[in-house]
């Protein structure tokens, strides 16, 4: 069964077994405003927790999205190349950013659950 965790930097990570899908939260997309460009990483790249993995660009500014955990990128959401606004319209669904293989599932313990994240964004 999938479990979803959240970071203080407004990423979500949905974990199923040793793979996970990562995106930014609805709160984050709302703060950013309309996205016009998403720079996706290369499949196969190895990420360390805290690495800038993706750059999302709104009309006004560019922001980094960080890896919530160590691991290897298995897939990226190619649909965002043609339609970056998917992140705005479906941040936690079709607007996902990348899929990864987790190197150390124990890192998830430091992340927030939905209730804690709700509290975090106030």
């Amino acid at each position: 069964m999938a479990a979803t965790y959240f970071t203080e930097d407004h990423e979500w990570i949905r974990v199923e077994g040793d793979t996970a899908i990562v995106g930014i939260t609805d709160y984050a997309q709302e703060q950013l405003g309309d996205l016009v460009f998403v720079e996706l990483p290369e499949v196969g790249r190895t990420l360390a927790r805290g690495d800038a993995a993706v750059v999302v660009e709104s009309v006004k500014a560019a922001s980094d999205v960080y890896a919530p955990c160590d691991g290897e990128i298995l897939a990226v959401n190619e649909a965002l190349s043609g339609d970056p606004a998917l992140v705005n319209s479906a941040a936690t669904g079709d607007g996902w950013l990348w899929k990864m293989k987790l190197a150390d599932a124990s890192q998830l313990d430091g992340l927030m659950d939905a209730a804690a994240y709700e509290k975090h964004i106030g």
Binding site: E11, A28, L32, S63
Partner: peptide, 8 residues
């Protein structure tokens, strides 16, 4: 994720 540059 980093936010857009915060102004002073």
């Amino acid at each position: 994720m980093t936010g857009p540059d915060e102004l002073k």
